[in-house]
């Protein structure tokens, strides 16, 4: 028997498969028409979708509002950039970015998880601002100018070596990475531990009565989210060839939050759809008028007011109903066959 969480996760998988297929077809077609810009823009959207996904783990499942998630994205990006400037190795840079964000996540989590609710939001916001300010003023890290001079790397995957300089190859690498992150997080959430995380969002006060610690799952969720944000952050300098303190500013965290809300929080896949939508929308509207920020703001307000479960909320119930019917039919067949 499947419970509601299983059905919900399966509906997410359906939406993810649609996204993956669409992205794959788009990538191949864009590459065939010789397009560079839209492929690289889509790659950036996928990288940012990792950041959005990490926010969704906190906001949509654990019930923690982080206003400074870009901190870990930035830590990953800076560490990856610094490593790449010395040793142009993809795996070393990515490993260092993950490791650094793990450490940053543990330190940040120990501080932020002492408090709840609005105080948690403010502390995450403050930590990101402090670190961004420090980097903004540190000359050896490029200060306000950021770091440039990051070489194009080769990506050895064992059976084949791809290049971050080739738009299609790097797009596929990032798409693969996001798929792994999505699959990994879906697995964690469907595990008993994941259910404790979700219970925290539903009713944190009751969780201790069921015999579970609330601190540990909250901490693990926070560190997991930090590592995901830092790992995708490590991909950013490989795409753009530079990093700047703006990557950690509130505008970056805020944008990622908007992606989650527009896409639909608590679905994982909604964050990815939201990221693709927002990046595409900002790019098109941004070229069209300089008042694009107003339009994005209005869109965000409309999403909050009229689509409480985000864009995904419009189609997900439909998919869920169908999955329930299929499941019910299967149960019936099973019972019919084994009298």
């Amino acid at each position: 028997m499947l419970d509601r969480l299983d059905i919900s996760l399966r509906a997410n998988h359906v939406l993810f498969v649609i996204l993956f297929t669409a992205a794959f077809v788009f990538g191949v077609m864009a590459s065939m028409t010789g397009d560079r810009f839209y492929l690289r823009l889509a790659t950036e959207a996928l990288i940012l979708s990792g950041l959005a996904l990490s926010i969704d783990i906190l906001l949509g499942f654990t019930g923690l509002l982080s206003l400074g998630q870009a901190l870990f994205f930035g830590v990953g990006a800076y560490v990856s950039a610094l490593v790449l400037r010395e040793v142009p190795s993809f795996w070393l840079a990515l490993g260092a970015a993950s490791g650094a964000s793990l450490v940053a996540g543990v330190v940040g989590g120990l501080i932020a998880n002492r408090v709840r609710g609005v105080y948690f939001a403010l502390i995450t916001f403050g930590m990101a601002q402090i670190v961004a300010k420090i980097i903004y003023n540190t000359r050896s890290l490029g200060a306000s100018d950021g770091l440039i001079g990051i070489p194009v790397v080769e990506i050895p995957l064992g059976f084949v070596t791809l290049s971050a300089g080739n738009p299609l190859e790097f797009f596929l690498v990032v798409l693969g990475g996001i798929t792994l992150i999505y699959a990994g997080m879906s697995y964690v959430l469907s595990s008993p531990f994941g259910r404790v995380m979700i219970a925290l969002k539903a009713n944190e006060k009751r969780v201790p009565y069921l015999g579970y610690s609330t601190w540990a799952p909250r901490m693990v969720a926070y560190v997991l989210a930090a590592v995901i944000a830092g790992t995708v952050g490590g991909l950013y300098p490989m795409l753009r060839g530079f990093v700047s303190p703006e990557l950690m500013f509130f505008s970056a965290s805020g944008d990622a939050l908007i992606m989650v809300i527009i896409g639909g929080s608590g679905t994982l896949v909604g964050a990815i759809w939201g990221a693709i939508l927002l990046v595409a929308f900002k790019s098109v509207v941004g070229s069209w008028t300089e008042h694009h920020l107003i339009i994005v703001g209005l869109m965000f307000m409309a999403a909050v007011l009229f689509m409480k479960r985000g864009l995904i909320g419009l189609v997900k119930p439909m998919i869920e109903r169908r999955l329930v019917r299929i499941e019910a039919a299967r149960e019936m067949r099973k019972e019919g066959k084994a009298p």
Binding site: V25, F26, M29, A30, T33, Y38, A42, A280
Partner: peptide, 9 residues
């Protein structure tokens, strides 16, 4: 959306 992007490109 994919169609749109490709068309645009």
């Amino acid at each position: 959306k994919t169609k749109f992007w490709v068309a645009l490109a």
